[in-house]
Design a protein around this nucleic acid. Structure first.
Lengths: 244, 244
DNA sequence: GACTTTTAAATGTCTGACAAATGAAAATTG
DNA sequence: CAATTTTCATTTGTCAGACATTTAAAAGTC
């Protein structure tokens, strides 16, 4: 394990990459302990601060976890679905907010993926999934609910739909995509009228899943996609009118 | 900007989170310069090393970039599609390798997503996409191609299919999913016979896209999914036989 | 044997220093 | 005056050494 001191790139970045490669390649396995910071400093022939910066980079990606005390140290971390989802959400949210992605593009991607889940969910959904969806529909029907809480409930509803496909990899990918869109959805102020419409579509979707009717589920999702886009367009044109 | 020195969590983690929140919330915009490390140290009332560890955490997530020299410093980074994809691939690859996800589960998720792209790709594909797909089919037909190169070409082929949907958000999500599966695909040693079969399916898929035939495209993807699973099962049972 | 104390090892934090890069400003030169 | 070179202040990158804190094993005690 040697590092190029003449490389213009940061030493800590090079070291982080070297360790990351060992982990990804499988040379280091889950829960294996890395050498202590002092040992690593000696091995790579750099100072302890540099090693620490490298380790912090890896920790930020949930590749390692650290523990203080004797017999503590840095350990290769098992990346959980929740950690992975968390990172996916951060990345996707930033990507959407920083790259002038149009609402329609994001919306289209989201519903394309969600429709892919729908046909699997129709076959595999359990009663537990339907229960969650109905619970959220009930919550959404509360007129006192704030817009933020309405959106949060919407996320929970759709996450249940995705989970109903009973494929954890799909759940991980999709829930990231759905949650990343929440900031965009929050721009839309939901009127009483639009809430009623969305709740109706949610109910229809739940019933399609209950009846295991693939086509109905897809049609309903199409309707929701159009309606969501329509709402967004209304908000945008109202905003641009205000500006004039 | 104050930090709780009594919090058991690392100071650098707390500080990184505080800065990350400013970026995600939009309080700091793209290309905006953060205060210098010394200034941040003073603001948060910690040492410069602690600040540096926090900044390295953010750099590892491509949230900031740093530049040396006068008028250098740390700047909020615009997260590009490529950076985002890179992170998604790392995360997904680790998730699959560390969590005993079955080949079938990963495969199922991948093709579910890819089918979602197919119907959009049928409508929007350009000739350029078909050209790439045909080029890769030609490459795959070369008998001298190594298994690794065959897999790499396979990834390029499917990425072209995904890109044909002409939705960058979808491309970002899907190419991550597809590339993350490559280590699993590499386990399969492709015989001449299975290569011929896959190439045939690829050709069929390209033709379906050319003819803008949605149903044919979906059916072909289903066939590829079954065949991929079948190959993987053959490899696994061969391996377990060897062990006995 | 059960409990307490000690101790060694490791990470977390701080301080102070110097190297290297870099762009602006000042000085120099034609 | 214009172009070039030099100087210089600022900022990140790296290092060395110190001390605080945490932790679990080991030793000691009853």
């Amino acid at each position: 394990m040697k590092i190029d001191h003449d490389n213009p790139a940061d030493l800590s970045a090079q070291i982080a990459e070297a360790i990351r490669d060992s982990i990804i390649s499988g040379a280091m396995i889950v829960d294996e302990r890395l050498p202590s910071e002092s040992d690593l400093a000696e091995q790579f022939d750099v100072s302890r601060s540099t090693i620490r910066e490298a380790l912090k980079r890896l920790a930020a990606q949930s590749l390692i976890r650290t523990q203080r005390g004797a017999f503590g140290g840095a350990f290769v971390n098992r990346l959980s679905y929740d950690d992975a989802r968390e990172q996916l959400i951060t990345t996707s949210t930033l990507l959407l907010s920083m790259n002038e992605v149009s609402f329609d593009t994001a919306c289209e991607a989201r519903f394309a993926l969600e429709r892919a889940c729908a046909s699997m969910a129709v076959e595999r959904r359990l009663d537990a999934h339907l229960d969650i969806m109905e619970r959220e529909i009930a919550r959404q029907s509360d007129a006192d609910l704030s817009d933020e809480a309405f959106c949060a409930s919407d996320v929970t509803f759709h996450r249940a739909l995705v989970d109903a496909a009973c494929n954890p990899v799909l759940s991980y990918q999709l829930s990231g995509s759905i949650e990343a869109m929440q900031p965009l959805m929050n721009m839309i102020t939901f009127t009483a009228r639009s809430r009623a419409q969305i709740i109706e579509i949610h109910s229809e979707l739940t019933e399609a899943l209950r009846a295991r009717d693939t086509q109905a589920a897809k049609n309903t999702l199409n309707r929701l996609e159009s309606y969501t886009k329509q709402l967004a367009h209304a908000v945008m044109s109202a905003k641009s009118k205000k500006r004039h």
